[in-house]
């Protein structure tokens, strides 16, 4: 692999084993893929196949066991400031207001709070939370909290977003709404996104590509290019092309015996 690539994410032969009492668990097994700058990549796979593990390695909070991962050409050797991470739960701090939660990366990275407060407020209205900046997390619904988490990941304008099942805990209606909003934000800001999900339709709806992983140990099973035009409306889910992609991916899981969607 060339030391410098133009890819935003370059993963090659990446493996991760966790040490456990009875030997070890291989969570991720020689996974290789690239993501070009500005692309929206969805990752689907059965539970326990190592999706979160992959994300934590890319976020620099978990060392890989073998292989290598590069972000924008540089080897990952710790957390970086040009990525934003959204976890499955909102992970807000109850003692911070909505705006202060959004500004957490700004505080940690000691950036100019005054300047970024305006950025934060703009982003909050972008996700439909105008006027909620002085509320506390417990005054918000689950979907609103998750939007705060997304805003927090965007506030320091990272080049890359890593999202681990961010809408997993939401009901179907809120979830579709959030999908639309995420697409809108992405169309406006064009960041590289790695989006992990359990839901095959969600992956096809959001992704330029869908990476399909095998059950544990996780490996890349297929790399599906979704050519549906943007912006996609919810109606796109009724098109034959959408159905074909969903069917194809689901069939892959059925062959491998790990269905989960």
């Amino acid at each position: 692999m060339a030391p410098v690539t133009t890819e935003a994410i370059a993963v090659s032969n990446l493996s991760k084993s966790y040490a456990t009492r009875d030997g070890g668990v291989t969570a991720l097994d020689r996974t290789t893929f690239d993501v070009p700058e500005g692309e929206f990549v969805a990752v689907v796979g059965p539970s326990g196949c190592g999706k979160s593990t992959l994300l934590k390695i890319l976020a620099g909070i978990l060392p890989a066991s073998a292989g290598e991962a590069r972000l924008r050409g540089t080897l990952i050797d710790g957390p970086r400031r040009d990525i934003g991470v959204v976890f499955q739960s909102p992970v807000l701090f109850p003692w911070r207001t909505v705006l202060d939660n959004v500004l957490l990366p700004v505080d940690v990275q000691r950036l100019d709070r005054g300047r970024y407060a305006r950025v934060g407020l703009d982003l909050l209205s972008l996700v439909g939370l105008r006027g909620f900046d002085h509320r506390y997390p417990w005054e918000l619904s689950g979907g609103m909290q998750q939007r705060v988490a997304i805003t927090r990941a965007l506030v320091h304008d990272p080049a890359m977003l890593l999202m681990d099942e961010p809408f997993g805990a939401l009901d179907a209606m809120t979830r579709e709404h959030m999908n639309l909003e995420l697409q809108r934000i992405w169309l406006e800001r064009r960041k590289t996104v790695l989006f992990i999900t359990h839901s095959i339709p969600e992956a096809v709806f959001l992704g330029d590509r869908v990476l399909v992983m095998t059950p544990r140990p996780g490996r890349l099973l297929d790399d599906v290019r979704v050519g549906l035009p943007r912006p996609r409306s919810l109606d796109v889910m009724n098109t034959p092309e959408f159905g074909r992609h969903v069917h194809h991916i689901r069939a892959l899981f059925n062959v491998k015996g790990g269905v989960d969607s």
Partner: peptide, 20 residues
């Protein structure tokens, strides 16, 4: 999860102590 979040932001141990 909150510790992981702080780590992903490249927070120092000091910052994790004071802020979290």
């Amino acid at each position: 999860d909150r510790v992981s979040l702080m780590r992903s932001l490249a927070a120092s141990e000091r910052q994790i102590f004071w802020m979290l």
